[in-house]
């Protein structure tokens, strides 16, 4: 086929280029700019090369928040994905209760993140919060503002409460898309409930689960608002996740160079993990 060059084609591309430039490229390049220079007042810059990157990657503080982040995201995925699937399986497939369940499930997703944080903060206060009083009433010493274990479990519980619904809704959509005939066929074959789950429901949910895991990974890996409102990263630094740490460095200490370098490293980690995960899950899905 012969292709004739048509300079007008550029006109169609320009709006997208401008949009992407303003919402992604220019901010990103600003960060790149800060990450390789020492910034002083009055826009005075000194070239520093890779110094900030090395500093961040070597710093104990970054390692700690990174490990904390991995542990948190790991816990979130391990709890929310199976729990979400289980709830979706238990939900009714038809009848008037379907919409009731769906609305109940969607409710937590509609609440703004800082409100969730504030809600749980009050809910879990050991002296006046319902949850805090209850746990202490059971004889367990619980105070999320002072004990790392309490702070962690409250943060994880809050995220499970807020986001498991997303996994439920996605799984439910995947389950609803399975034609009834599959279940009949399985019944005729004499398959038990576990076999139906393992050989029909799970493979049929594969795509939506990939999306669910990916979304939950990215969101929980970048979590900021809720723990910021709930614990502020404390007690000490025990719930200081990557983004909280990043904000502390950038805005608290105003170390723009290290903060910019850390942002880029952070960004690349999320991108890399998502890409590896997606490639693995989708392998064999070609054709």
């Amino acid at each position: 086929m012969n292709k004739t060059p048509n300079p007008k084609a550029w006109l169609f591309v320009i709006p997208v280029v401008v949009l992407v430039a303003f919402n992604a490229l220019i901010p990103l390049m600003t960060v790149v700019n800060y990450s390789v220079q020492e910034t002083f007042g009055d826009n005075v810059f000194f070239w520093e090369g890779m110094k900030w990157f090395e500093e961040v990657l070597r710093s104990e503080r970054f390692h700690e928040s990174f490990l904390r982040q991995i542990a948190f995201t790991g816990m979130i995925l391990v709890i929310e994905i199976p729990l979400g699937i289980a709830i979706a399986l238990a939900m009714p497939r038809k009848g008037p209760w379907v919409s009731v369940c769906l609305v109940l499930m969607a409710l937590p997703l509609l609440i703004p993140w800082n409100v969730v944080g504030a809600m749980w903060n009050i809910f879990a206060l050991p002296d006046i919060g319902l949850l805090g009083r209850m746990i202490n009433g059971l004889g367990i010493d619980y105070n999320f503002t002072q004990q790392p274990v309490s702070a962690w479990s409250t943060t994880v519980l809050m995220d499970v409460w807020h986001w498991t619904s997303l996994v439920v809704l996605l799984s439910y959509a995947g389950l609803s898309a399975i034609p009834d005939a599959y279940y009949q066929a399985a019944k005729i074959d004499g398959a038990n409930a576990w076999a139906v789950f393992r050989f029909i429901q799970l493979p049929k949910m594969k795509r939506v689960l990939t999306i669910a895991i990916l979304l939950r990974f990215m969101d929980s890996f970048m979590i900021y608002t809720e723990p910021f409102v709930l614990t502020g990263g404390g007690p000490g630094n025990t719930t200081t996740f990557l983004s909280i740490d990043l904000v502390k460095i950038a805005l608290g200490q105003f170390d723009l160079g290290p903060a910019a370098a850390m942002s880029l490293i952070y960004f690349l980690i999320v991108l890399l993990v998502s890409w590896i995960f997606y490639t693995l899950m989708m392998r064999g899905e070609e054709n």
């Binding site: 066929a185 004499g190 049929k204």
Partner: peptide
Amino acid sequence: VQKRSVAMVYQQFINYPN
């Protein structure tokens, strides 16, 4: 149905996906 000797084929193509 499990205790009978029945096979069924449907309008949709029903096979175990994996």
